[in-house]
Design a protein around this nucleic acid. Structure first.
Lengths: 165, 165
DNA sequence: CACATATACTTTGGTTGCTTATTTAATTAG
DNA sequence: CTAATTAAATAAGCAACCAAAGTATATGTG
């Protein structure tokens, strides 16, 4: 394996972990007075539900947010109690629950999205427009890659372990 | 404000949040049979302690990992119980605790680092060498920027809130 | 049709990782 | 020598997750 690639990989790894630890800024409860996980759910619904849609299934949300269905149910429970989302039974399959933003929920997440977008506009100015687009693309590529490699990575590590004398 | 920048910012924001939710792959307990937070501490020590160093202070670790000192204390407690790290009193200031990896801890984290590095070498191949370097640089720039903007962002959002009629 | 199996979600109980507030011990300033 | 400060540890508690078990609905097979 190329030494060059290994050196680059090391740099990439360090930047990656460094940005992981510092990077949870916009997920601070004290800012929104709302739990970060719940905001993530609201955000995801707001970017994935069209106005005429019947709403998202719990399983769709959990799949895309990479968490288990119980976790989503709990977020939805809390958000529903605050009247930020609505649950509707799916007429075609009554096991399915369709989740929609309420008007209150729409306004709420819109305000957060605007504040966040302002921050990202600042970041675009800081990085440059072309570099920002490139950065966005690389984040997508990298997280897709990591998702595909996950299983392989685990298997490799475990084999490694059983090798141990 | 430029519409162009806003569109780019939106793309950047979407990629950013998408990579946040998918991206915690290498932090999976089941892989290492060890808590992710503790691995992060081991990793940080391994990359920041030279062989002749007296070890890191709790406050140094907590500062760089962006957590409070009690959090670090708890991780160190668990790691010490597993004999992966050692606590040493600092002779110059006996309030200070110096944290060092044990031999077992060194071997342990080295094995994890190798597996992780392999994954990142794969990522470098996937993205390309030049792009990987650029990506690493942009991650650094972006997380630095977000850290500096954090306070401003919070203030802005709260002002916004009090404006609400 | 009936019943076994599968699916979609919810409930329950527990773990991890973090926080704030407080305490203990050691150092430094007046 | 005392008062204030600093470093770390302890205590109590919350948020976000998961696995396992439970409930209700749907589907496939004889």
């Amino acid at each position: 394996m190329s030494v060059e690639k290994k050196i680059i990989a090391k740099q990439l790894m360090e930047s990656y972990f460094q940005s992981q630890v510092g990077g949870n800024m916009m997920q601070n409860r004290s800012i929104y007075n709302q739990k970060p996980g719940e905001i993530m759910v609201l955000y995801f619904i707001s970017t994935n539900v069209k106005d005429d849609s019947p709403g998202l299934k719990v399983s769709e949300i959990s799949g895309k947010l990479n968490v288990t269905p119980p976790t989503v149910t709990q977020h939805i429970n809390s958000l529903e109690a605050q009247a930020l989302v609505e649950r509707h039974a799916d007429p075609a399959d009554r096991r399915v629950v369709r989740i929609l933003l309420s008007d209150k929920g729409k306004k709420y997440i819109q305000r957060i999205n605007e504040a966040r977008l302002n921050m990202f506009v600042g970041l675009v100015k800081h990085l440059g427009e072309e570099e920002s687009l490139l950065f966005a693309e690389m984040m997508r590529k990298a997280s897709d890659y990591m998702l595909t490699q996950q299983e392989f990575y685990i298997r490799n590590f475990i084999v490694d372990e059983t090798d141990e004398k």
